[in-house]
């Protein structure tokens, strides 16, 4: 049996330790407060495409079995801190996602998330660019809207193209039956299979996501009058690295989106998830205008080290746990 050994080499283990220290140093030098929030909680996200790992906290004690979840990101707790007046904060910790394992996925991973009060998503993209610049000096940085990246590689406007046209392109890209897929699924498939592999070297920001994929971002009408979400994603050498928002602060709109997620989960026969009422209460009490971004630290390590799988940059990836 050799899988008792770590997947990471000792050189890379030391490099990983240095990078974690550098990440903390970057934020400390900017007077951003480090917070450590729970990874275990009684509710979790309602996202239609993110599954939470559940845990029975009191299962063996004879008390009522309160089900709980490992958190898929520190976002909700951090927003509650922001609403409580914390000011700028960052969190470097673990996040968990059910059913995600592969070369670029591990059910448990290290996530860096931070929030800037009074900033919009473009200011935050600039700061993320500076962070990558300190770790990978000389990286090229490109910014392109979600619409333009689809026009460039697929010659369609993702916001206005007919569903039938998206489905046809998705079937071609997947070479299998995708004819009855939703708009969101077709766009995800086309982005992952066609666009992502063609993105430029270095850091590429894609912003102004379709409104149906706004998640927890504010929406607005862009210059062409298309309703888009103020969400961005960052890709480093064609690997998805980070996801950020100009945060939605409207509690009622957030509640409406959660209800929509729940409905979609029922339709897709996915487990029902209770809405985090404490988060909604925090938004009602007032979340400051802010932008936030979450970054996969293990994937960042992969790019810095030129590794081809997460197993080469994590002490013990899932196959060794």
């Amino acid at each position: 049996m050799t899988d008792w050994q770590p997947g990471i080499s000792l050189d890379r283990l030391r490099q990983r330790g240095r990078i974690l220290a550098e990440l903390r140093g970057f934020f400390q030098s900017r007077n951003i407060l480090e917070v450590d929030v729970p990874v275990l909680a009684t509710t979790s996200v309602t996202d239609r495409n993110i599954e939470s790992i559940s845990a029975g906290v009191f299962a063996d004690s004879g008390l009522c079995d309160v089900s709980a979840y490992l958190q898929t990101s520190p976002e909700y707790f951090m927003k509650r801190l922001l609403a409580a007046g914390s000011g700028d904060i960052f969190c470097l910790g673990k996040a968990f996602r059910k059913g995600e394992a592969g070369r670029r996925h591990n059910p448990e991973f290290t996530m860096l998330e931070w929030y800037r009060c009074g900033w919009d998503e473009h200011q935050l993209m600039a700061e993320l660019g500076e962070l990558i610049g300190t770790l990978l000096p000389g990286s090229a940085i490109q910014k392109i809207s979600y619409a333009d990246v689809f026009i460039q590689y697929l010659e369609i406007d993702p916001h206005r193209a007919e569903l039938g046209c998206l489905q046809k392109l998705a079937v071609e890209a997947a070479s299998s039956a995708w004819s009855d897929e939703s708009r969101g699924n077709c766009l995800d498939l086309l982005f992952s299979l066609v666009i992502e592999p063609q993105l430029a070297d270095g850091l590429v920001f894609v912003y102004d996501y379709p409104a149906c994929q706004a998640a927890l971002a504010k929406c607005y009408s862009d210059a062409q009058g298309r309703e888009v979400g103020r969400r961005f994603e960052a890709f480093l050498n064609r690997v998805e690295l980070a996801n950020g928002y100009f945060e939605l602060t409207d509690g009622q709109e957030q509640a409406r989106r959660f209800a929509e997620d729940q409905q979609a989960r029922i339709v897709a026969s996915k487990p029902e998830m209770q809405v985090d009422q404490r988060l909604l209460a925090a938004l009602e009490s007032g979340l400051p205008e802010c932008s936030g971004v979450a970054l996969g630290v293990d994937r960042l390590l992969m790019q810095i080290e030129g590794a081809t799988s997460l197993d080469q940059v994590m002490s013990f990836s899932w196959d060794r746990c």
Binding site: D47, N49, I50, G99, E100, A101, G102, R103, R104, H105, G184, N185, D188, L189, F191, S192, L193, Q213, A215, E233, E240, N243
Partner: peptide
């Protein structure tokens, strides 16, 4: 395994 963070796997 391919999955955009917020998207379909």
């Amino acid at each position: 395994f391919v999955k955009p963070g917020k998207g379909q796997a």
